[in-house]
Amino acid sequence: MSRDVQITFDCADPAGLAAFWADLLGYRLQAPPGGFETWDQALAAMGVPPEGRNDASALVDPEGSGPRLFFQRVPEGKQAKNRVHLDVRAAPGLTDDARMAALEAEAERLVSRGATRLRRHEPAPPLGTGHIVMADPEGNEFCLD
């Protein structure tokens, strides 16, 4: 039996980190509950005070095939290297120099949006196609692959 998966990020700024990942993945903010035009309206109706309205955020794949991403505010900052990370396929169908050039271009774009470039791994044939290790604005590692 297969199961749905949600990926959860502990973070300081759920709305800000959700916006970064939405841009990176082409995801969109999950729509508010029925009967509400905005999340602010829904949260107000639920009695959530203004200072608690950035305690969580969620993104969904507009095509419905990828996992939901959930961002939740936690009091502590990131403590250590991720033991699990996302590989973002940023150069599908490309090989060799063209592939690495596409990864470099995406890395530059993401740095301009708050990411940090950590290191580049050169292609190592036959199995290693090369990748770039990045960190999102709150330090969570991911790879452009």
Rank of each mutant, 00 (worst) to 15 (best):
H85A: 06
F142Y: 03
D96W: 01
A42F: 12
R113H: 13
R113K: 10
G128Q: 08
V84P: 03
C11F: 11
L86I: 08
S57V: 10
L127W: 15
P75C: 03
L103K: 08
T8P: 00
E76C: 10
A115N: 01
A56P: 01
P33H: 08
M46F: 15
Q72C: 12
A124Q: 11
D13H: 09
L43E: 09
A124P: 00
L25R: 04
G64C: 07
D87Y: 04
G34Q: 12
D61K: 06
G47S: 14
F70M: 14
A12G: 10
R99N: 00
V88Y: 08
R28I: 06
D96S: 12
P125W: 06
F20R: 07
V48A: 15
V133Q: 04
A101E: 10
L29V: 13
E63K: 11
V48P: 11
V111K: 02
G139R: 03
P137L: 02
E138H: 01
R119Q: 12
E76P: 01
A58Y: 05
P67N: 03
E76A: 14
N82C: 12
G47M: 14
F36M: 07
V111P: 04
A98Y: 08
P125V: 09
L118T: 08
D4S: 15
S2T: 15
F71A: 05
D55I: 07
L25G: 07
G34V: 06
L86H: 02
G34I: 05
Q41A: 15
L103N: 02
L144H: 02
L118F: 04
R53C: 12
A101G: 07
R109I: 05
R28S: 11
G52E: 13
P67S: 06
P33N: 10
D96R: 04
A15W: 07
G66K: 04
C11V: 07
P62W: 09
R120L: 13
E108F: 03
A135G: 07
R83E: 14
V5L: 15
L127P: 00
G26P: 02
A107R: 01
V60K: 10
L110W: 02
D4K: 15
V5N: 12
E51N: 13
G77C: 10
R68T: 10
D23E: 09
S57R: 11
A102M: 04
D145Q: 09
V111G: 03
R119N: 09
G114M: 09
L94E: 07
N54E: 03
R53P: 08
D40M: 12
G34M: 11
W21F: 05
